[in-house]
């Protein structure tokens, strides 16, 4: 008879809600931005800087993957998203550093050039906040038993 119990949540962790929804929005934005940019550049001006454009395409793929895992939710998705955020952070740091140390490798900008300075450094901020958020989400109990009236002290 008790089909819908208000206290029983789905066992999935809500990594795509609350602050997570802001991350979903930003990852969606960067999937579209990096994806459309790299597709256009790979088609229209491939010979100018293939490495840069493939790197942008790779960035778009990572963004899309994190976006999907955030929306799907659940513990395994959370772990995959965490790993992808690690890849993303490593990508921004490596490509950002290489674009300064060996600029001759890149004949055009990528999404991650100069640590994402062309995108207000959001490509650098996003994986860091993503990792922080996903780590925090791990500490939360699965079926949030907190009463609604109680203010959460650990609110960032």
């Amino acid at each position: 008879m008790a089909e819908a119990q208000p206290t029983q949540e789905k066992p999935r962790r809500k990594i795509g809600e609350g602050p997570g929804r802001l991350l979903v929005s930003l990852y969606g934005l960067f999937t579209v931005a990096a994806g459309s940019r790299s597709v256009y550049q790979l088609i229209a001006q491939y010979h100018k800087a293939p490495l840069s454009y493939w790197l942008s395409a790779f960035a778009a793929l990572v963004y899309a993957f994190i976006l999907v895992t955030l929306v799907r939710g659940g513990e395994s998705a959370r772990r995959i998203a965490l790993a992808c955020c690690g890849v993303e952070l490593a990508g921004v740091l490596v490509v950002g550093t290489l674009s300064i140390v060996t600029p001759s490798w890149f004949h055009d900008q990528t999404v991650w050039s100069y640590y994402g300075a062309g995108y207000v450094c959001i490509p650098l901020i996003l994986p860091v906040t993503g990792i922080l958020w996903l780590r925090r989400a791990a500490g939360q109990p699965e079926a949030d038993p907190l009463p609604l009236a109680e203010p959460q002290p650990a609110d960032a």
Binding site: E17, G18, P19, R21, L22, S25, L29
Partner: peptide, 23 residues
């Protein structure tokens, strides 16, 4: 851009929805 943010802010009925609008 802004309609997409508005849509997300309608799904997320907390302060974070407003943060999406600001973004």
């Amino acid at each position: 851009t802004v309609p997409a943010a508005g849509f997300m802010s309608l799904i997320e009925r907390t302060r974070w929805g407003s943060a999406i609008g600001a973004a």
